[in-house]
Structure formats: structure tokens, C-alpha cells
């Protein structure tokens, strides 16, 4: 048993070294994430939303996650797909996902399948224990996915985002 653990550790260490080596030689697409707090501002009776640093975070607060991708390689990046599981202790903020030039789909089954909101369903038990199928709601989402319709040219960057509410 102990020998097995040693073996696994060795493998993971070597993978890590190898990975570092690869990154050192070739550039990749890079991804960065920013979390910001969404606050509602009322100015002259008009409500608008403003992004603030993610401090004083409490249950019920809304967080916007902004994901920035940049192609650091010398060639176009094809079929760029960004996938973000909903963080634990949060639920998806309905209608919040955005991304220019991206087809946005969602999963309600832990990332196994993805579809647009109109095609997502949940199977739940009714009072008599029978399975019934209902349309999925925002709080059922487990993942958000952005598929970029166009290749990302070398040096080009872009952002996608979504909102989550702290439970």
C-alpha cells in the first residue's frame, strides 16, 4: 500500500516537471479570472449595477466572474471552449452569462451534457415518487460553457463572464 502511494507521488511529480518544461518552451492560450462584487446604485431614481472589489462578501451578494483569455501562441487558437463549474456555495444568476462571439450553454448534470436554457430539463420525484420532468431553473445549473465561434488570432484576447449569488 505504501509502495503504491510512493509510486503515484513520483508520477505526479514527474508530470509536474514535464508540464513546467513544456510551458517554458512553448507559449499557450492563457486564462485569468477576476471576481467582483455587484452592487446596485440608484442615481436620480435610476437603478444601475456597478462592479466593486470582492470584499464584504455576504450570503445573498452577487459576484461577477470575468474570465480573460489571451492567445500567447504564434498560431490561431481553434475551437476555444471555456468551462466554469458553478462554485460551491453559489447559484447561477439568471441571465448573467455573456461573451462576445461565444455560444453559451449550460449543464444541469455536473458537466456531462450542455445545452441552451430552453432545452435544459430536470427530472425530479413528485409526491407519489414518480419521476417527472420540468424545465431547469437557474439554480439547477452546475456549469457554464462558452464556445468561441471564431478562432482567436495570435496576440488577441477577449473576455466572457457570468454572475453567481452566494447562498
Amino acid at each position: 500500500m505504501q509502495k503504491m502511494i510512493h509510486y503515484v507521488l513520483l508520477v505526479s511529480v514527474s508530470t509536474l516537471l514535464l508540464g513546467n518544461a513544456v510551458i517554458a518552451r512553448a507559449q499557450s492560450v492563457e486564462l485569468a479570472t477576476k471576481a467582483e462584487k455587484v452592487i446596485e446604485v440608484v442615481d436620480k431614481g435610476a437603478k444601475s449595477k456597478k462592479l466593486m472589489p470582492a470584499e464584504k462578501m455576504l450570503p445573498g451578494d452577487e459576484v461577477t466572474y470575468t474570465l480573460t483569455y489571451v492567445n500567447k501562441t504564434a498560431k490561431p487558437a481553434e475551437r476555444v471552449v471555456i468551462t466554469n463549474p458553478l462554485p460551491r456555495h453559489t447559484r447561477y444568476k439568471e441571465g448573467s452569462a455573456a461573451g462576445e462571439g461565444a455560444d453559451i450553454t449550460y449543464s444541469v448534470d455536473g458537466g456531462k451534457t450542455f445545452a441552451t436554457p430552453d432545452k435544459l430539463t430536470m427530472t425530479v420525484k413528485d409526491k407519489s415518487g414518480q419521476d417527472i420532468t420540468r424545465p431547469a431553473a437557474a439554480q439547477d445549473y452546475t456549469h457554464v460553457r462558452w464556445l468561441l465561434r471564431q478562432n482567436v488570432a495570435p496576440g488577441r484576447s477577449g473576455t466572457v463572464r457570468f454572475g453567481a449569488v452566494i447562498l
Binding site: A77, E78, R79, H89, I166
Partner: peptide
């Protein structure tokens, strides 16, 4: 609350290693 995103892509039709950000 940890958030982790992953991006997959291909270069010249060859899948590249996924990249993540948290």
C-alpha cells in the same frame, strides 16, 4: 468560495493541453 475555469483549444488541428484559472 473557489472558482475554477478551464479552457480547451487546438492549434493547427491538434488539441493543446487545457489551461485553468482560479
Amino acid at each position: 468560495i473557489n472558482n475554477n475555469a478551464t479552457a480547451t483549444y487546438s492549434i493547427g488541428g491538434v488539441p493543446a493541453p487545457p489551461v485553468s484559472s482560479g
